[in-house]
Amino acid sequence: MLYVVAGLILGILAGFNLDFVYNPEYVVYISLAILAIINTIFNILSENIKGQLSNFKSCLFLISDLLFALFLGFVGEQLGLPIYLAAVFAFGNNIYKNIRVIIDFFLEKFNKNR
């Protein structure tokens, strides 16, 4: 747990202090990649709670989410259509579903302890 907190603090400090500038044309791809990573984190947490987590599955979640999101972003850019919004809605729905599983787990755990 200490490593997680230290990593978060170092990441936040690095993000505020590094002067990293990216091309504005990549905003869609960067936002989709961040959303895919957040979706993967919640998938991993949900699978861990269910007891179905494996390292292979975690890597497969990350790779498939990133490829799906970036592919939709690329196709949308080529066609001039906001197809990437399908990935945003799909990931948002999946994130909320996994948050629901996590909250249900903690509510059941809380009710058992009462």
Rank of each mutant, 00 (worst) to 15 (best):
I44H: 00
I44F: 00
I44N: 02
I44R: 01
I44W: 01
L45M: 11
L45S: 05
L45A: 09
L45V: 06
S46N: 06
S46D: 04
S46K: 08
S46V: 03
E47W: 11
E47R: 10
E47T: 07
E47Y: 11
E47K: 08
N48L: 09
N48F: 03
I49N: 06
I49P: 07
I49D: 07
K50V: 07
K50P: 04
K50I: 08
G51P: 00
G51F: 00
G51Q: 01
G51A: 00
Q52F: 02
L53Q: 05
L53D: 02
L53F: 02
L53H: 03
S54I: 03
N55L: 04
N55V: 01
N55D: 01
F56T: 08
F56Y: 13
F56R: 06
F56D: 01
F56A: 09
K57E: 03
K57N: 03
C59H: 10
L60R: 12
F61Y: 13
L62Y: 02
I63A: 11
I63G: 01
I63C: 05
I63E: 00
I63W: 03
S64G: 03
S64I: 13
D65Q: 11
D65V: 05
D65K: 10
L66T: 00
L66H: 02
L66N: 01
L67M: 08
L67K: 05
L67W: 11
L67H: 07
F68E: 01
F68M: 02
A69H: 03
A69E: 01
A69R: 03
A69L: 05
A69M: 04
L70D: 04
L70N: 02
L70T: 04
F71A: 12
F71V: 11
L72S: 02
L72C: 02
L72H: 02
G73C: 02
G73D: 04
F74A: 11
F74Y: 14
F74T: 13
F74V: 07
V75R: 09
V75C: 08
V75E: 08
G76E: 10
E77S: 14
E77H: 13
E77Q: 13
E77T: 12
E77Y: 09
Q78G: 08
Q78D: 09
Q78I: 14
Q78V: 15
L79I: 07
L79K: 08
L79Q: 08
G80M: 01
G80D: 00
L81N: 12
L81T: 13
L81C: 06
L81S: 11
P82G: 06
P82Y: 12
I83S: 11
I83P: 13
I83V: 15
I83H: 10
Y84K: 05
Y84S: 12
Y84W: 14
Y84A: 10
L85Y: 15
L85N: 14
A86S: 15
A86T: 15
A86H: 15
A86N: 15
A87Y: 09
A87D: 07
A87C: 07
A87H: 06
A87N: 06
A87M: 05
V88F: 10
V88M: 06
V88P: 07
F89Y: 14
F89D: 07
F89T: 12
F89C: 07
F89H: 09
A90E: 10
A90S: 13
A90R: 13
A90N: 12
A90I: 08
A90M: 07
F91N: 08
F91Q: 05
F91W: 06
G92K: 10
G92D: 15
G92P: 11
N93Q: 12
N93C: 12
N93F: 14
N94D: 15
N94H: 14
